[in-house]
Simulated scan of single mutants.
Amino acid sequence: LFRQNKMRNTDSNSDDIEDVSLFDADDDVSRRSKKSKIRHPVASFFHLFFRVSAIVVYLLCELLTSSFIACMVTIILLLSCDFWAVKNVTGRLMVGLRWWNQVDDDGRSHWVFEARKVSAQGSKTSSEAESRIFWLGLITCPMIWVIFAFSALFSFKVKWLAVVVMGVVLQGANLYGYIRCKVGSRKNLTSMATSYLGKQFLRQTVAKEDQTAS
């Protein structure tokens, strides 16, 4: 089962939350999935392959070829493949999240954010290692494209602005969508950070008490 949050682009800005059943029911596994084991190596590879390849091509394109068109087309294709793979495949497999936009019969746009529910036994389909890989690649690469955008702007490389802006937009859209999936429509980043810090403090306190007792 997945938790689904719908955000409707209407004047009331109301959010609808409902439980939906998506994908196969046999996705639920035992607690062993929480171990630091990569359960989806192919998805983990392609989660980083397209976006890292686009960055490498951008950095080395002037050394590889003198054709700006060839470099631009290659980078945009890699960015497009990355956007589709991360949005539709790797997010679902690696962290149990997915988002998309749909238009209903009335022409209204709906942003849909889904997160896989944890079962009563606390089982997951993604491991801690996959989660680290997913969020590291998802956050780091858009930041690199932002740096490229400022670099192209200040160095007056106007012809590259369209390419780097495309990188910022496509990878930034995935980042925004998955943050909304993770945080939820009724939570903000501040409350999530506070909860995280509280958990870390509690763990350290318990660990110190265990050491003292031993």
Rank of each mutant, 00 (worst) to 15 (best):
R32I: 07
K157T: 10
T194L: 08
E114T: 09
V73C: 13
D15M: 14
L48K: 03
S14I: 15
G96W: 01
K87E: 01
N174P: 04
Q200D: 02
R132G: 12
D28S: 05
G122K: 15
G96D: 01
Q171G: 03
P41S: 12
L136C: 15
S33I: 02
R32G: 15
I55E: 01
L202V: 15
F148Q: 08
K124T: 14
Q200S: 03
I144C: 05
S30V: 04
K37V: 08
V118C: 12
D27S: 04
I17Y: 15
N88E: 11
C141R: 12
S151A: 15
S33K: 00
D27L: 13
D26F: 14
K35S: 02
G198R: 04
V165L: 11
M7H: 04
S119P: 02
N9M: 08
I38E: 09
V146M: 14
S53M: 04
R98T: 09
D28C: 11
V118R: 13
G167M: 01
Q102A: 10
W145T: 01
C61Y: 14
K6C: 05
L97E: 00
R32D: 15
L138A: 10
S30H: 06
A70W: 08
F201G: 13
V164H: 04
A162C: 14
Q171N: 05
M7F: 14
Q211M: 09
L175D: 02
T140N: 07
A115T: 03
L197E: 02
H40V: 09
G96M: 01
V103T: 03
N5A: 10
F45W: 01
V20A: 13
N101Y: 08
P142K: 02
N5K: 11
G184T: 01
S214M: 04
R8H: 06
L93T: 13
L93Y: 11
C71E: 03
M72I: 12
K182C: 00
D24T: 05
G91L: 01
V20P: 05
K208L: 05
Q4K: 14
H47A: 03
M166F: 13
K187Q: 11
K182H: 01
T90H: 07
S131H: 11
I139C: 14
I75C: 07
S123Y: 12
E18F: 06
R8M: 06
K6W: 08
T10D: 04
D104Q: 05
D11G: 08
K187I: 00
L22I: 10
W145S: 00
M166W: 07
L175I: 08
